[in-house]
């Protein structure tokens, strides 16, 4: 334990855990919404990537000199960028629906198409060294200064500054982070306590029965794919508009796939997904913070952890998951 204090490393690890878990949570919610409606969505990765890109490029474009100054102010710019990212995700969700419902493409193939398409489109339109233009500001900001902080010395190098450090974790966050929490809450409630939720779950379990009861299966699937795509898009927007503030090729690095694992880990429930995402976020945060903890272990090997964890979860070593019965198969109406 050299110059860095253990306390600082602990706080950083917590903050990074939250930061990494936001896009994964959103991706997992997207997966839950789609699979609960009977459509497997393996294209979350691509939806995130393309939305991250369009959001970022909107932000860049709106600050060019020929754009009217009214649109150039940071709040307007970022709101529009966010809207474009959401729309991108939603449209890709509809494309997934078009391919898999209308054209009966295997849902996994269709999702793969979206992933490869997003990789290609972002590669083609991205120019290196596109200027970065700031990101979403913190919604609240830390109300506690370090000067007024209470020192809590637990060990030689383990000091916390109580209100200040807690403020950093709770208040020093951007809009999307808080929004994610709200969405987890809303979706967790809506899926199990509203008519929409009941219908959504019913088309994922037994679309024929739902159809017989007068539910328009396809329309609900399209609606939920659009919403699910928007959730993935929000996750992508978080990457470019809130977390990093710039775009890199292939920057989602598997988050969309990890999200699927988190969805399974959380047993297709929003709160479970949030728990899973925090666990995965922690594994990722640890990778960056190891040296801060004075542990000399190759960070690449720690970096394998989230992926190994995903396999362990999938193999059912952590409780048996119960997927929606009809997920992955296209529902075909009779006659």
């Amino acid at each position: 334990m050299s110059e860095t204090e253990l306390g600082l490393a602990v706080i950083a690890t917590i903050n990074f855990t939250i930061r990494y878990s936001v896009p994964i949570t959103l991706g997992a919610l997207s997966g839950i919404l789609c699979e609960r409606s009977g459509i497997v969505n393996i294209g979350i990765e691509g939806m995130m990537l393309l939305a991250a890109f369009t959001g970022f490029m909107t932000n860049v474009f709106l600050s060019e000199p020929q754009v009217s100054p009214a649109l150039q102010t940071a709040p307007v710019r970022l709101t529009l960028a966010l809207a474009v990212a959401l729309l991108t995700g939603g449209l890709l969700g509809l494309l997934h629906g078009l391919l898999s419902i209308q054209y009966k493409v295997d849902q996994i193939v269709s999702g793969t198409v979206i992933n490869i398409l997003a990789l290609g489109l972002t590669g083609y339109f991205y120019r290196l060294n596109t200027p970065t233009l700031g990101k979403l500001p913190n919604l609240i900001g830390n109300p506690f200064g370090r000067d007024s902080s209470l020192e809590l010395k637990l060990a030689d190098n383990l000091t916390f500054y109580l209100p200040y450090d807690i403020g950093r974790i709770l208040f020093d966050k951007d809009l999307i982070t808080y929004l994610t929490l709200v969405i987890v809450f809303v979706l967790g409630w809506a899926l199990f306590h509203t008519t929409w939720g009941l219908r959504t779950r019913s088309i994922g379990e037994n679309p024929r029965a739902a159809d017989t009861l007068g539910i328009n299966v396809y329309r609900l699937q399209y609606t939920n794919l659009f919403l699910g795509g928007m959730l993935a898009g929000l996750g992508g927007a978080f990457l470019t508009l809130a977390a990093v503030g710039l775009f890199e090729q292939g920057m989602t690095t598997g988050r969309g796939f990890i999200a699927l694992a988190v969805m399974i880990f959380g047993n297709w429930r929003p709160w479970g997904a949030l728990r899973g995402a925090l666990l995965f976020g922690f594994a990722t945060a640890l990778q960056g913070q190891l040296q801060q903890f004075g542990i000399d272990f190759p960070h690449q090997l720690v970096g394998m952890l989230p992926y190994i964890l995903t396999i362990v979860v999938l193999a059912g070593f952590v409780g048996r998951a119960q997927p929606p019965a009809h997920a992955g198969r296209v529902y075909e109406t009779e006659g």
Binding site: T253, G254, F257, A261, I311, L314
Partner: peptide, 8 residues
């Protein structure tokens, strides 16, 4: 999923 994870 497992093959994608094995990629990473």
């Amino acid at each position: 999923i497992t093959t994608i994870m094995l990629n990473y």
